[in-house]
Structures are given as C-alpha cells and as structure tokens.
C-alpha cells in the first residue's frame, strides 16, 4: 500500500521481536491506512499475536520502527501507547471476570480524564451492543463467550482509539456470533472512523470484512494485496480457504507448492 500518499494510521517497518532467544517475528513491514480495515492472516505460530503485542508495547521490538500517524511509538510503555490512541482487544477476550460489565467498560477508559465524555461513550457502545446494557450490572465472567467478545471490543472502544488491534475476535465463537461481531466491527469502522487491524485464522470472514490483507508465515510477510485479490489467489484458496482444485488429469496434486516459497 505504499502507493497512497497520505500518512498511514499505522506503519510498521522491519520489526523483529523475540521471546528470550527465540525469534518470533523476523522483519515484518506493513501499513494500515487511515479508516481502513486491514487483516493479517496466518496459521498458529506465524507471529500474528506477537506482532500486535509489539505494536501495543506489551513486547518491545528488538529492531525496526512502529509509527502511529508518522510518530514513533516503538518501545513506549503500553499505557503511553493506549493514551496515543491504540486499543488492543486481546486474544481470548481477557476481560475482568469478577468485575461488572460496567466496571470493565470504565477500565477501558482508564487513561482518559474523568470528565472527558466517558458516560456518553458508554451509551455509544451500549448502542452497538444492547445486550451489554441489559447485563451492565452483571459480573463479566458470567457472560457467554460471544458476549465477552462484545465486551472486549466495547471496552477497547472506551479508550476512544484511533486504531483498534483485534486479535482473533472470531476465536471459539459460533458462526452466527462471528457474523454479528464482524458486522459491528464494520459499523464501528464506518460510523466512528476507527481504523481496524485484524488478526485472524478465519481467513474468509476476515477478508470479506477487510479492505486489504497480509499473509504471515513463520514471522514474515509472504503475501499481501487487496482482499478481493487475496480471495481469488489460488494459494490463499488452497491453504487458507480450504478450496480444493482438481488438476489437469482430474485428480488433485499431492501437494501444491506455495508460490512464495
């Protein structure tokens, strides 16, 4: 997406992150343009979660730069990065189970001064997720998985983010719940102008939602392109969408070689 002239909301260049001596991402560069939805696809262990953790400051990049609207944020404290407008909706929801739904939401706005329209924003997220308003007084741990995911996204919105990092929002949810949640992500993007960066294993749902996609393998970007291009790419179809093509002689080849290898 280097052709766009405007400063991207988020740009990551050549970052490397390690778990101790083990390298998890090796030189990833990507861009997320303002007010768009970008999906990052990849299998288990591809480095997707590490990438998000590095952007939100939970992990420090060993090398490379993370820029938020042209301002370097790599290596900042997580709290500072939240304050600059990056909300991270972590994998597996990570809500506060013994606090009420309302308290969970207030904690989403922790970095904001008290008078700064937090009550209005609470009403705003209740508008997107009416079930949370019904359950506002209930302990968050008693919500269903889908409701907890809604809470995690709503809690992220309470930070008034410029960009939201969503880590596997479809994880462990029914197809119906996935549909519902992805529809709200789209609406938040359009109506609230929040840029979205989405990490997913559910490639089809992610590409149908996103404008642009990157494919990660073993800590590297191996492919990128507009969602429609990725959706029609034979490699993506075979390895991420599970479409099986038949070969010339009417039988499937033993194993397709990935063209990026």
């Amino acid at each position: 997406m280097s052709q766009s002239n405007a400063v991207p909301m988020l740009s990551v260049s050549n970052i490397e992150s390690y778990y101790g001596p083990i390298i998890a991402i090796r030189g990833i560069s990507l861009e997320v343009p303002k007010q768009r939805i970008v999906a990052v696809l990849g299998a288990n262990g591809a480095g997707k979660t590490t990438l998000l953790k590095t952007i939100s400051g939970i992990m420090e990049p060993e090398k490379g730069a993370v820029m938020l609207e042209g301002q370097a944020i790599g290596g900042d404290e997580p709290a500072a990065i939240v304050r600059k407008g990056v909300a991270h909706v972590p994998e597996g929801r990570e809500i506060f189970p013994l606090l009420s739904v309302r308290d969970n939401l207030s904690l989403g706005a922790y970095t904001r001064p008290a008078a700064d329209g937090i009550a209005e924003d609470m009403e705003m997220v209740f508008g997107y997720f009416p079930i949370l308003k019904e359950r506002a007084g209930q302990l968050a741990g008693t919500l269903s998985g889908g409701q907890q995911q809604m809470l995690a996204i709503a809690r992220g919105m309470m930070a008034r983010p410029r960009i939201m990092l969503l880590d596997e929002p479809s994880l462990g949810l029914s197809p119906l719940a996935v549909k519902e949640i992805f529809a709200v992500i789209r609406r938040l993007n359009v109506e609230q102008g929040v840029t979205m960066m989405l990490v997913e294993q559910n490639a089809r749902a992610a590409l149908e939602l996103a404008d642009y996609g990157y494919v990660l393998e073993l800590g590297r970007v191996v492919m990128e392109g507009s969602s429609s291009r990725l959706l029609s790419s034979p490699d993506i179809q075979e390895f991420y969408l599970g479409v099986k093509e038949s070969g010339q002689r009417g039988q499937r080849r033993w194993k397709r070689r990935k063209t990026w290898r």
């Binding site: 939970i58 709290a79 500072a80 972590p90 990570e94 506060f96 606090l99 922790y110």
Partner: peptide
Amino acid sequence: TRLGLAMQATSQNQLAAYYMGIP
C-alpha cells in the same frame, strides 16, 4: 474509586490491565 478499580483489575488479569493502559 478509579485506583481501587485498577487494583482489582490488576489482580484479576494483569495482562489485560496492561492492555487498558493501567500502570
């Protein structure tokens, strides 16, 4: 209180507390 809530949050889920920008 805000601080009390942050303390509860930290004790229930430290990682998520980091994500919320709680010091």
